[in-house]
Design a protein around this nucleic acid. Structure first.
Length: 551
RNA sequence: GGGCGCGUGGCCUAGCAUGGAUAGGGCACCAGCCUUCUAAGCUGGGAAUCCCGGGUUCAAAUCCCGGCGCGCCCGCCA
């Protein structure tokens, strides 16, 4: 059981002993650790809540878990024994028990899956950052996680790209594929929207691709592969790793087989086929979801069903990280797939878009800020700050770390469903609620430990300062934070916790000198700093941020 | 039009699931703190109709109903 839960349970037990069947709640700052609001007993007991709280206070038994249980107005407040808490927390952190979660089921988590028609832009960046972080948190919680990227190489957009590469000389010749060929894609899109015959040519291309034309497949594989490599490189720069890329075209035969299986639930319209959701007994805002075009080519919807069933062979729990625009699509896929394979559980993690002040970003229209450019700018800004400090060769490494961590954190620190309007200064903020603030705090702790040489001894009785106790309490919450983040599939819970923890360490740093304290206190404080460094380092890793010893 | 999401100081944001004690942070602004462990830090200050209107309740930012504003979706695109 988690440390804080042990205390909570103890409080509930003490209440039960005096005949009160109720659960304590987390208390507000300054009112102890747990509280029992007594308003609810007023009617029954025909007394004021304050009198009831007082009565409970007098009856309740003493326990070594709590240093004080007292009535404050209508509340009965429980104050945890700092000594007991410190003893449990420090030992569990130092020997690693606090990080031992039970092994849990395997999960396939899909994120990003951006069309390989251009470089990743900031509007899309929320997906890999949230997805990658969620995968890390789930792993921390004991799940085995396989991270997937579903590569669209079979749809209209990609056919447009291929047509553009074949028919339009590239304006830009050097650089990463994604930055080069995006011009061909944009130009081809424009031409296709202007001229019907070009759109026809693109459709023809798509048909040939899907029918398995070998020469074209080879060409597509090379070009799309190169685009994808560009995207992959960008992802690696922000510390996002994909375990497996699954190409849509590889699932077409299977998709067609599944369409057969769904035959009883389909309808036909001008030669195109759709799933009739009513026939499947599914109620959604839309009833027809198309599987086939009238030219016989498959649609994304069908391929996505096939893909989810494929993922279902790897794990029973699937997590999809999706933009808010995919909600309807997702619920349709989920209900169909879970019907075809009732053992599967598919859960979404939706996020809202990152927009520009002028509106939505679009690769096709070229109204974007590329993630590569944002990373570059972040690096430049960090280097600028570092030139005044003499870190020499390490500067570049530090600047890279600061750049990607800042970008990740600026996304993670906002609740997923809140819309974000992109601003350079905000995405690359280096102070306040930011990655550099947290990493800086880590570096401060590291610096103390470098100089202090902790001898692996400590006495929790000496850790009585308010800031020491607050820091220990916050650290003790780590397992619950991870659990709660997994249950609600919200990485930002962990991101906020990281900030609070760093902030609390800075309070401690201000009020409690470590190195200059007398030997025993010094050792105990070093143990606290050591524990803090372990736990914050762990959190940084779980958030995919850099942990720097110096900055 | 229907569905989903969002609405908290000048700007950004936490809290909302499980209603409770002074609505917590950050940016910006003002005033301070580097002969002592890293000032990417810390302290203090001003600044809030918690979108609006009803309702439930001893108690509403939080729950319910009705509005308003913004975003997304309602494609033989993905």
């Amino acid at each position: 059981m988690f440390i804080m839960e042990k205390f909570r349970e103890k409080a509930n037990e003490l209440l039960k002993e005096i005949g009160v069947e109720a659960e304590v709640e987390e208390a507000k700052e300054g009112f102890g650790d747990f509280t029992l609001p007594c308003f609810r007993f007023a009617k029954l007991m025909k007394k004021s809540p304050a009198a009831i709280a007082k009565e409970f206070e007098e009856k309740i038994k003493k326990s070594d878990y709590f240093e004080k249980i007292e009535a404050v107005g209508p509340y009965l407040n429980f104050h945890i024994s700092p000594e007991k808490l410190a003893k449990m927390t420090l030992s569990e952190i130092i020997d690693g028990r606090i990080f031992q979660f039970k092994k849990k089921d395997k999960i396939v988590l899909e994120h990003t899956s951006a069309n390989p028609t251009g470089p990743l832009h900031v509007g899309r960046a929320r997906n890999p950052i949230i997805g990658d972080t969620m995968a890390r948190i789930l792993r921390e919680h004991g799940h085995e996680v396989e991270v997937h990227y579903f590569v669209n190489d079979a749809g209209m957009q990609v056919a447009t790209l291929l047509w553009g590469i074949m028919n339009l000389p590239s304006i830009k010749k050097h650089g990463k594929c994604d930055h080069v060929y995006v011009r061909n894609y944009q130009e081809a899109s424009k031409l296709a929207s202007e001229k019907k015959e070009i759109e026809g040519e693109i459709r023809e291309l798509m048909k040939r691709y899907e029918s398995g034309d070998e020469e074209l497949r080879e060409f597509g594989k090379e070009k799309i592969g190169c685009m994808l490599e560009g995207i992959r490189e960008t992802l690696e720069k922000i510390n996002v790793h994909i375990d497996r890329f699954v190409w849509e075209s590889s699932l077409i035969p299977e998709a067609k087989r599944i369409a057969e299986e769904l035959k009883d639930y389909t309808g036909e319209e001008n030669g195109a086929y759709y799933v009739d959701m009513k026939k499947m007994g599914i109620e959604l805002q839309k009833n027809k979801f198309y599987l086939y075009r009238n030219d016989g080519t498959t649609l994304y919807f069908l391929r996505d069903i096939a893909y989810h069933l494929y993922k279902g062979k790897i794990a029973r729990t699937l997590v999809d990280v999706l933009g808010e625009d995919h909600k309807l699509h997702f619920y349709a896929i989920k209900s169909i797939v879970e019907k075809l394979n009732p053992k599967l559980r598919i859960t979404p993690l939706f996020y809202s878009f990152v927009r520009l002040p002028e509106g939505k970003m679009s690769t096709r229209k070229g109204t974007v800020v590329y993630l590569d450019d944002l990373i570059e700018e972040g690096y430049r800004m960090a280097m600028d700050i570092l030139k005044d400090r003499n870190y020499g060769d390490e500067s570049e490494k530090i600047a890279e770390s600061i750049a990607y961590s800042s970008i990740r954190y600026s996304i993670l620190n906002v609740q997923e469903e809140k819309p974000i309007v992109f601003r350079w200064d905000k995405a690359l903020s280096f102070e306040g609620e930011s990655a550099p603030f947290i990493i800086y705090t880590y570096a401060r702790a590291s610096s103390i430990l470098r100089k202090g040489e902790w001898k692996n001894t400590y006495d929790v009785k000496l850790l009585t300062h308010e800031q020491e106790i607050k820091l220990i309490k916050l650290m003790a919450k780590y397992p619950e934070i991870i659990k709660s983040s997994c249950e609600s599939l919200s990485p930002y819970i962990v991101a906020r916790y990281a900030y609070e923890l760093a902030m609390q360490f800075n309070q401690f740093y201000r009020d409690c000198p470590v190195l200059s304290s007398s030997s025993e206190l010094r050792e105990s404080r070093l143990a606290l700093v050591h524990s803090f460094k372990i736990i914050l380092g762990r959190i940084l890793k779980v958030l995919g941020l850099a942990a720097l010893e110096k900055m």
